[in-house]
């Protein structure tokens, strides 16, 4: 049994932890609000762009196919862009996406895997165990702006055209609701040709203005940029949502612990009083008898 003094001390420290988790919850909630509207707004743009590009990809005759659409399966190198958080305390958020990535790597052991990390946690995990980390952006995920995405995208496209790697995948956490987010991966290069309504296309060939090649030349980098940026936004939103939920749970748990400790504190105090009373009474009785 702990003494009343010790119990009081732990109540005090748990209260201060509770205050911190509560503050973190509020911070996460306000950030979530900011980024959530942005992610939902830009989703329409990204989806439409993907749609236009996959129409474009499927309507070009294969003999005229642009190098960016052609499969380069002969190059056994897969590049992975992994987006994680910089900090923990957000439930299973980091672990889920890291495990999804690790599983993918295990399934593709025949290829050389090169990792590009945005976010500290992913880098921390994959820096052990002999993975090739090609690049790590030590800046905050939050501050990873569109200009940086642009540079990264153009480097990736150049590398792909030069035949440095055969596939490019991006691993991120897709935001659904504030309680739901799922680790997801997209193959960015070569572009996936699914989700194409072939029926509609069959109606007639597309007219390209000025030319299919030039549109690809301009649309493609934009597509990669918006995809990567969208993935970062999705991940950020999921991270804040996850952190908020984790912190709400932590605050609740701290409250429960405080309640429990208060009860045992009262019990301990009562016991000391009873003990002291018993001592006084037995002392008095001894005097009367004597």
């Amino acid at each position: 049994m702990l003494s009343t003094k010790e119990i009081k001390q732990s109540i005090r420290s748990i209260s201060s932890i509770k205050q911190i988790t509560r503050a973190m919850e509020m911070v996460a909630a306000s950030r979530l609000k900011k980024v959530e509207s942005r992610v939902l707004a830009s989703r329409a743009y990204t989806e439409r762009m993907q749609q236009v590009l996959s129409h474009l990809a499927s309507s070009i005759p294969s003999e005229r196919s642009h190098p960016l659409f052609t499969q380069k399966e002969s190059v056994p190198v897969i590049k992975i862009v992994l987006i994680t958080a910089d900090k923990g305390l957000c439930g299973a958020y980091n672990n889920n996406i890291i495990q999804t990535t690790a599983k993918f790597i295990k399934e593709n052991t025949g290829n050389t895997i090169k990792l590009i990390h945005i976010g500290k946690k992913g880098n921390l995990y994959f820096s052990k165990g002999g993975y090739t980390i090609e690049k790590y952006y030590p800046e905050n995920v939050e501050k990873f702006g569109y200009n940086q995405v642009k540079t990264l995208a153009s480097q990736l496209i150049d590398g792909y055209e030069a035949g440095e790697f055969g596939q490019l995948h991006i691993f991120f956490t897709k935001f659904k609701t504030t309680m739901q987010y799922s680790p997801t991966s997209i193959r960015l290069l070569p572009i996936e040709k699914d989700a194409i309504k072939t029926k509609v296309i069959a109606k007639g060939e597309y007219i390209f203005e000025p030319s299919a090649e030039q549109i690809i030349e301009h649309l493609f980098p934009k597509y990669i940029e918006t995809q990567i940026y969208q993935c970062i936004l999705e991940s950020l939103t999921s991270e804040y949502a996850a952190r908020r939920v984790a912190m709400i749970a932590a605050t609740e748990n701290a409250g429960e612990m405080i309640d429990e400790l208060t009860r045992s504190y009262n019990k301990a105090r009562q016991e000391t009083i009873t003990k002291e009373l018993l001592e006084v009474i037995s002392g008095a009785e001894a005097l009367i008898k004597g």
Binding site: V52, H55, L56, I201, K203, G204, E205, Y206, I207, F208, E209, P210, A212, Q214, I215, H218, L219
Partner: peptide
């Protein structure tokens, strides 16, 4: 260029 209903499929910059 102008676009009316039933325009041919097109992608333009």
């Amino acid at each position: 260029f102008g676009v009316l209903a039933d325009h041919a499929s097109m992608i333009a910059e």
